[in-house]
């Protein structure tokens, strides 16, 4: 049985597929979120060094991972869209950017909240913090470039180029920042050696990572659906949906 994978690269069929998938991902994400938070706040033991404050790790680490991962996924789909001229891939890339930027922001925010009780300061110019901040700038650049271009196809392609340039630059930026950081060791706090974690802590964190995954997929699919409707509003199938009252 050969599955025609290309069937779902058409916005119309992807629209209905995504509509069926969203509730599943929302459900799984909520279940995992509740389970992860329960493990994180009630099951995992108190850290003997950091006290209760360490529990922010259950939000901070998944957010930081997602922020980096989503940029690569976004650049991948944007690149596919540029290379094969597939509209849906570019729409997906556009849909990923706000979620990625949100996770970057959460990672920075929770990092600051965590840093205050641990290191006594909201912000240090540590290599990880700095590269996360630069990643946030890259997301903002991608989104504002796309927002400034009125023609959606040009916006897709221009965004794809800047995303690919960014993805080539991320390792260079990361290692530059790391080197810069080792040169200016004086003021910074070393957070390089992660202390051994209790198994329940790790479990809680991994559940939260999975929950963030599911959440991202659900939100990105939803946003892609909206983008599809916006761009395909002139087509017959959207008009039909509208007539049936399926969309407002």
């Amino acid at each position: 049985m050969a599955i025609n994978w290309f069937k779902y690269s058409s916005p119309a069929s992807f629209y209905s597929l995504a509509g069926k998938m969203i509730p599943v991902f929302v459900f799984v994400s909520v279940v995992l979120l509740v389970a992860g938070l329960y493990v994180g706040f009630f099951v995992a033991p108190t850290d003997f060094q950091q006290g209760e404050a360490y529990r922010i790790i259950f939000i901070h680490v998944p957010a930081a991972w997602m922020s980096m991962f989503l940029y690569v996924v976004m650049a991948f789909w944007a690149g596919i869209g540029l290379a094969f001229n597939t509209r849906l891939s570019s729409m997906l890339a556009t849909a990923i950017a706000p979620t990625g930027a949100m996770f970057t922001f959460i990672a920075l925010w929770t990092g600051a909240l965590w840093g205050k009780p641990m290191w006594g300061t909201w912000w240090v110019w540590d290599a990880r913090l700095t590269s996360e901040l630069i990643l946030f700038f890259l997301y903002i650049g991608f989104m504002s470039l796309q927002a400034a271009i009125d023609d959606p196809r040009r916006a897709d392609k221009a965004g794809a180029i800047i995303a690919l340039v960014g993805v080539i630059n991320i390792p260079i930026i990361y290692f530059s920042v790391q080197w810069w950081n080792t040169l200016h060791q004086g003021a910074s706090v070393s957070i390089n050696q992660a202390p051994a974690m209790a198994t329940t802590m790790l479990t809680g964190m991994l559940i939260m990572v999975l929950a963030s995954w599911m959440y991202s997929i659900a939100v990105i699919l939803k946003r892609t659906r909206v983008i599809i409707l916006e761009r395909e509003s002139h087509t017959a199938w959207v008009a039909e949906l509208q007539k049936k009252g399926a969309i407002l």
């Binding site: 630069i134 400034a148 180029i161 630059n169």
Partner: peptide, 26 residues
Amino acid sequence: LTLGLRGGGVLVSLLVLPLYIPVLIF
């Protein structure tokens, strides 16, 4: 990329300055 766009001058700074960082550092 920003050729002929509204507010291209400010936009170009958002796009380009993060990419300048390694040169600045070294």
